[in-house]
Simulated assay, not measured.
Amino acid sequence: MMKRWFKYQALKLVRTKGEVTAVARGFCIGLAIEMFTLPTAGLAFFLIFPSVAVLRGRLASAFIGFVLGKVVYLPFAVLNERVGHWLLPEHFAVHFHMLPDWLNQLLTINLYLIAGGIVDGCILAMMVYFPLKKVLLWVQKHRRDNRRRAAHVIAD
């Protein structure tokens, strides 16, 4: 069942209309934003729209990257938290007097996850962009050649 779902997502990505670089860029935007959306209670999802517009990606591929990012988020959560500890000051903590201690600790952990997720998401997106672009170019060329061959067969 999962294999079929992944194949379907890959097929949707490959068939997304638009320039290959815009499709790859959109996918990477969605993937990067997913790396810090969970600790923000899903509000980071709304960053997809302006990010795609500013960086000129494809919205459809950004959504596919966002959905596939959910699959890889859990293994990256530990790394996100570690990177967040490296980025934020050593004794960083959230402390609102009106909130119970457990909620302050939860907010502190979420800030570590957000800080680390932003960095890890950007690095992951850069690592995925060029191989994805090459694969999309190869698939586009392969499909174009198949269409030409089919047109020649029909014409003959």
Rank of each mutant, 00 (worst) to 15 (best):
E34Y: 06
I33H: 04
A53C: 05
L88V: 02
M126K: 09
A44W: 00
A60R: 08
D156W: 13
G30T: 03
I109A: 13
L11W: 06
F66K: 02
E34S: 08
F66S: 01
L38M: 13
A155I: 11
P100Q: 10
V94M: 04
V23K: 09
K133Q: 11
Y129M: 12
N80V: 07
I154G: 05
L38Y: 07
E34Q: 14
I29W: 03
R15Y: 14
Y73Q: 10
K3W: 15
Y73C: 07
R56C: 07
K133M: 09
L106M: 13
L113W: 09
F6Y: 12
V72A: 06
R147I: 15
D120N: 14
I48H: 00
L87P: 15
V71Y: 05
V20F: 03
F76T: 08
A151W: 14
D101T: 12
H97W: 14
I33N: 05
I48E: 03
H85Q: 12
H85S: 08
P89A: 00
M35P: 04
A32V: 02
T108G: 08
L38A: 12
A10C: 10
R147T: 14
V67L: 02
F92L: 06
Q140G: 08
Y8P: 04
F92M: 09
P89E: 01
F27M: 03
Q9G: 06
A60N: 13
L55G: 11
H85A: 10
H97N: 11
G121F: 02
I109D: 12
F45M: 08
M1P: 11
L99D: 04
V119K: 07
R144I: 13
A10K: 06
P50Y: 00
T37D: 03
L68M: 13
G69C: 04
L13A: 01
V52S: 01
P100R: 11
T21C: 10
V52L: 00
R58V: 05
F130T: 13
I64D: 09
P50L: 01
A93V: 10
I109C: 02
L107K: 06
L79K: 04
V153I: 12
C122H: 06
A22Q: 15
V135H: 10
T40D: 04
V52R: 00
A77T: 14
Y73S: 06
R82P: 01
V67K: 02
D145L: 15
K133W: 00
R143M: 09
N110T: 08
H142M: 14
D145F: 09
L59I: 10
D101Y: 11
R58I: 04
L74K: 08
